[in-house]
């Protein structure tokens, strides 16, 4: 069974006839704009039929060739010629990076020793040595870091160690 839309399209196209046409026109009495819509649609169809004729191409192959050439040319222009990595470029880039790294290494990290003196722990003065951290080996031992700046002597002074008798061979 046809839907209303199918019958409506068939009515506009003049494909309904007989009892079917009469029944559908009775159905259309509830749609007062239907006749105006039909006339508008027929008029549009007529207009399109009259104006849709395309002038034949004189040389269609040449035209296609021209179109394809234009597309190819636009493709070439559209592709950006960005940075492309190649082995020589990679090598130069690596060398440049290495030079920068070497410069930073030489500039920031000291390699030449300088004479040191002692100072109190925590000091950041140039040429300073220090006891950063110290702890006794067991609770019976006490450790005191000592420093004599006049004689440049730093000592970890341990107390609580066992006395070693003369019989104890130190060597």
């Amino acid at each position: 069974m046809k839907t209303f839309e199918e019958k409506y399209t068939a009515w506009i196209d003049g494909e309904l006839s007989g009892a079917e046409l009469a029944a559908f026109e009775r159905e259309l009495e509830g749609h007062p704009d239907a006749q105006a819509d039909r006339e508008s649609t027929l008029k549009l169809g007529e207009f399109l039929r009259r104006n849709s004729e395309v002038a034949p191409l004189a040389h269609p192959d040449f035209f296609n060739h021209q179109i394809l050439q234009r597309i190819e040319a636009e493709k070439t222009v559209a592709r950006p010629r960005g940075w492309e990595w190649s082995w020589p470029r990679l090598a130069w880039a690596g060398m440049a990076a290495l030079l920068v790294a070497g410069f930073l290494f030489k500039a920031w990290i000291p390699t030449e020793p300088q004479p040191l003196g002692f100072a109190e722990s925590g000091s950041e003065a140039p040429g300073v040595a220090e006891i950063v951290h110290v702890s006794a080996g067991d609770p019976s031992i006490s450790v005191t870091p000592m420093h004599d700046s006049r004689d440049n002597v730093t000592v970890l002074w341990l107390e609580g160690l066992d006395y070693l008798p003369a019989s104890y061979n130190l060597r």
């Binding site: 002692f118 040429g127 300073v128 220090e130 006891i131 110290v134 002597v153 730093t154 341990l158």
Partner: peptide, 19 residues
């Protein structure tokens, strides 16, 4: 006897007073 972390240089020896 003792564990320590110390910063030393070529002319700055560290002495530990032992037993």
């Amino acid at each position: 006897l003792v564990a320590t972390e110390a910063r030393l240089g070529p002319e700055s020896p560290l002495f530990i007073r032992g037993p």
